[in-house]
C-alpha cells in the first residue's frame, strides 16, 4: 500500500521546493509544470477532502469541531481513500507526500490532530533560519517584516483563524516558529527526518537522497540529479515569472512565491533590532538546530 509521509514545516521554509524536487523525479525531458505537479498529495489543511470524505459541510462546524474530526479524515486517506476518486492515479505511487503547515497538536479530545501513526508513517520536518523566514513570510502575508516577526513570536498564531468568514483551507495552528518546530521534533508518535533549508541548498542532491531513503522511495542517481536541475530555484522563479504560480499569495503586484530563496539574506533584509527580536524569542531552538546567533554583534546594515 502507498505510504503516507508528511512534509511538515513552518511556512516559507522550503516545503514547496522539496515538493518540487520530489515531483521532478518523474520528469524526463522538461521540468514539471509548477501548476500541475504529477505528484499532488495536496496540503493537510485543504477543506475539500474533509467535506468530501465526511459528507458534512465543514462550514457548519467550528474550528475546534473540525479539529476533532480531522484525525478520521487522515486515517481514511492514509488507508488509501483518494481525496478525489475521479482523479485516482492509475498506478499507485510508492509514497504519498503531503504538505503540512499545521503544528503537531492534540485535538480538544486529546488525540493527535494528524492521527499519529494512523495518519502517516513518518514526517520530514523542514526548518529554515527564522531570520530568513521573516522577510519571506512578510512577503507572503503582505505584512511588514515587523508584523511577520510578531506573528512568528506569537504562540497563539495561525492561518485561516478568523471565525467571521470562510477560507479555502481549514485553520492551521502555528504556535510561533519555535513552538511549531518543537511540536514536530518532540512528538513521539511517528519518526522524523529533519532537513535544514540551508543544507538542502548547500547539497541539494545529497539532501534529497536522504529524504527519499527515509521515505522508502527509491530513485536512481540520474533521477535525483535531473530533479535537482529541473527544480533549481532560478528555474522555479522563471516558471512563476512566465505563467504564475497557483499557490502564490492572492494576485498582488510584485508578490512572488519564489522570492529570493537565499540562505543568510537576512543580513541585508533585517535591521539589527529585527534580528535581535527573533533571536530573543527563538534562541533555544536556533541553537538546537545549529543556527548561529548574531547576538549583539554588529550587523551589516540597518534600515
Amino acid at each position: 500500500m502507498t505510504r503516507t509521509i508528511w512534509l511538515a514545516s513552518y511556512p516559507k521554509s522550503g516545503n514547496t521546493w522539496l515538493r518540487m524536487l520530489i515531483a521532478n523525479l518523474a520528469s524526463q525531458d522538461a521540468p514539471a509544470d509548477i501548476n500541475d505537479l504529477p505528484e499532488r498529495g495536496g496540503i493537510s489543511s485543504a477543506r475539500a477532502p474533509f467535506d468530501h470524505l465526511t459528507l458534512i459541510d465543514s462550514s457548519l462546524l467550528t474550528h475546534e469541531e473540525i479539529d476533532c474530526l480531522r484525525p478520521r479524515v487522515y486515517e481514511k486517506l492514509a488507508r488509501g481513500a483518494q481525496d478525489d476518486e475521479y482523479d485516482a492515479p492509475e498506478a499507485a505511487l510508492p509514497v504519498r507526500f503531503v504538505k503540512v503547515h499545521d503544528a503537531y497538536t492534540l485535538t480538544p479530545k486529546g488525540e493527535p490532530l494528524l492521527a499519529g501513526r494512523g495518519g502517516a508513517e513518518g514526517a520530514i520536518v523542514i526548518v529554515r533560519d527564522p531570520r530568513d523566514v521573516a522577510p519571506s513570510l512578510a512577503n507572503h502575508n503582505r505584512t511588514s517584516i515587523d508584523d511577520a516577526i510578531t506573528f512568528m513570536n506569537d504562540r497563539n498564531a495561525g492561518f485561516c483563524v478568523k471565525t467571521s468568514r470562510q477560507y479555502n483551507q481549514l485553520r492551521q495552528q502555528l504556535p510561533g516558529w519555535s513552538g511549531h518546530i518543537v511540536s514536530w521534533l518532540d512528538q513521539a508518535d511517528i519518526p522524523v527526518h529533519l532537513v535544514r533549508y540551508e543544507d538542502m541548498q548547500a547539497d541539494t542532491a545529497g539532501t534529497l537522497k536522504q529524504v527519499l531513503a527515509f521515505a522508502g522511495r527509491s530513485a536512481t542517481v540520474e533521477e535525483i540529479n535531473r530533479a535537482v536541475k529541473f527544480a533549481d530555484f532560478a528555474q522555479l522563479q522563471e516558471q512563476e515569472r512566465t505563467k504564475g504560480f497557483r499557490e502564490a499569495p492572492r494576485p498582488h503586484a510584485g508578490k512572488k512565491f519564489f522570492r529570493r530563496g537565499e540562505a543568510g539574506a537576512w543580513r541585508e533584509e533585517l535591521t539589527a533590532e529585527q534580528a535581535a527580536r527573533i533571536e530573543a524569542e527563538h534562541a533555544p531552538m536556533m541553537r538546537r538546530l545549529g543556527y548561529e546567533l548574531a547576538g549583539a554583534a554588529p550587523l551589516a546594515r540597518t534600515g
Binding site: 470524505l53 465526511t54 459528507l55 458534512i56 469541531e65 476533532c68 474530526l69 478520521r72 479524515v73 486515517e75
Partner: peptide, 18 residues
Amino acid sequence: TGPIWQIAVNEVLLSVPD
C-alpha cells in the same frame, strides 16, 4: 463505512460527534 457515516441498501447513517 466512511469516517463518520455508513450506507446500506436504502439507508444512510451519519454521526456528527457532539
